[in-house]
Write a protein that binds this DNA or RNA. Sequence first.
DNA 1: TTGCTATATACATATATTCATATAATCACT
DNA 2: AGTGATTATATGAATATATGTATATAGCAA
Lengths: 113, 113
Amino acid sequence: MAATQLQTFKAQFFRALAHPVRIKILEILIGGDRSVQELQASLGLEQPVVSQQLSVLRNQGIVTSQKFGLSVRYALRDPAIEELLDVARRIFNNHLVGTGVMLRELRREARRG
Amino acid sequence: MAATQLQTFKAQFFRALAHPVRIKILEILIGGDRSVQELQASLGLEQPVVSQQLSVLRNQGIVTSQKFGLSVRYALRDPAIEELLDVARRIFNNHLVGTGVMLRELRREARRG
DNA sequence: TTGCTATATACATATATTCATATAATCACT
DNA sequence: AGTGATTATATGAATATATGTATATAGCAA
């Protein structure tokens, strides 16, 4: 049996996560909803870059957006996204860690929960 | 703070999952290790295609390979991969499902466990 | 060595993503 | 209507990924 429509859909979902800036955005949003401005400040990136990456996450239904006056606040659509990133971190932690830098970063993350 | 090395690494990991054939391969490997031949038969794809996708998974340390005579058997390096796919499925199930076809496929998967 | 099988890699081309920059749209306020 | 602030989209060049086909490598058997 070849790959189905569902597998294609799952692949698209994972592709939406396949970018360092988008990962970082999700990690920030785990702490609660944020405006584009706030995200931009946390990320230290140009505004269009942030909006572009947000649109990728929005198109896959991973985040939701809501207007409040001038600003737009983004949030995780599903708290299970945090769980997903946790499982991913466990996998890295178990096996995939090569360099000392990354190992240190991982441990810092783990301590923060 | 911009994206770190660790976030880049995570992004690469998710990119390795971002392909329907690779998703399908992982789902097969959840059932136990398989030779390239067996995978090829299950997938109904040309041999080079299967090897190419396996090499992506291998390079990210998601699967391991071991030679037995002529054949090479592949396996999940970490059982938590199954957990990761489960969480992903829960996320789809909660929110991301549009068409009836996919919903039916999802439910079939859920029933199988 | 030769031949056969299983697997991996190389290569070319098509397609998709990224990144930076420019521009547009939306809203609030005067 | 006009202005400033916030966010979104368009565009093009650079880069990366996917796909299909050809070829290479490795092991086994005769």
